[in-house]
């Protein structure tokens, strides 16, 4: 104890104390913190009843106790499993806060819970189902046809290569560069938020896969170097000013300062 008292005023004492405090707090948190979403992943069977309970706990406030819709939110009867899977697995639902549109966030439900919810909503009325792995496999798609379809149907909101764009009144078409193939398919199929529905008569399942193939191809990057966000001439202009003219003026100042 004496030795400790003698070192109380050492320069490093506060730092050591702080580290100790952090270590203890972190250790205690790791031991005592409630571990979320550890349960029931064993059962792969979707459970409509569990889904209903999840729905009543997380969704019923806005969508109504039987998903019949309220003045706040639409009815979910007949939207199908695909819509639920899209909204919940991208974290858009349950909605974080009201605003121009629901933003994507880390998903609140785990895979099993999402599947249960989807099964419950699908049980309320017939609607589009979650696409199969083959339906969304980019390697089976034709990106050239996808490029044509994307240019005609999607680029006006999502930008030519899916870098995202602005809509009216604070709404936006999100960038598509890290959206999963399954979610891309579901978005086309169900038309979330401001997006129109592209049903199977409008864009066939094969064509949807072509669009996915085109978007996946864009992730390989640009042949010309850094893509600068694929935002077009505005970002190019900013780089021309900042990098191009910036370096040149820097060089001019340096040359000017050189003794003649």
């Amino acid at each position: 104890m004496k030795a400790l008292a003698a070192r109380r005023h050492h320069r490093a004492a506060p730092v050591v104390l702080m580290l100790l405090a952090l270590l203890v707090t972190g250790g205690l948190y790791a031991v005592l913190a409630p571990s979320p979403a550890t349960a029931e992943t064993a059962s792969t069977e979707t459970d409509v009843e569990k889904g209903q309970r999840l729905f009543q706990a997380n969704c019923a406030t806005c969508h109504g106790p039987n998903a019949e819709g309220t003045s706040e939110a639409p009815s979910l009867v007949g939207v199908g499993a695909a819509a639920v899977d899209f909204q919940v697995s991208t974290g858009r639902m349950p909605m974080q806060m009201s605003g121009p549109q629901a933003a994507a966030k880390p998903p609140q439900m785990d895979l099993q819970q999402t599947a249960d919810l989807a099964a419950y909503v699908a049980s309320l009325g017939a609607g589009p189902a979650i696409p199969t792995a083959e339906q969304v496999n980019a390697e089976l798609g034709d990106s050239a046809n996808g490029a044509l379809l994307f240019r005609t149907n999607c680029a006006m909101c999502h930008n030519a290569v899916g870098a995202g764009g602005a809509l009216s009144e604070g709404k936006w078409a999100p960038p598509l560069d890290d959206v999963s193939e399954r979610n891309l398919y579901q978005a086309m199929l169900t038309g979330p938020q401001s997006m129109p529905v592209f049903n199977d008569a409008n864009i066939t399942p094969e064509e949807k896969r072509d669009v996915i193939a085109y978007l996946v191809e864009q992730r390989e990057g640009s042949a010309g170097g850094i893509s600068l966000g694929s935002l077009g001439p505005v970002s190019e202009g900013i780089w021309a000013w900042v990098v191009g003219l910036g370096l040149m003026i820097g060089a001019a100042v340096w040359i000017g300062a050189k003794s003649s």
Binding site: A147, L148, R151, T152, A155, M156, C157, H158, N159, A160, V161, A163, G164, G165, A166, A173, Q218, S222, A223, G224, G225, I226, S227, L228, S230, L231, G232, P233, V234, E236, W239, V243
Partner: peptide, 21 residues
């Protein structure tokens, strides 16, 4: 090092489509 005006992103001209941005 920096790509500029990747015309294959926009595609060949056709008077109907317009891209965002």
């Amino acid at each position: 090092t920096m790509s500029i005006n990747n015309v294959w992103n926009y595609g060949p001209y056709d008077p109907s489509p317009v891209g965002a941005g």
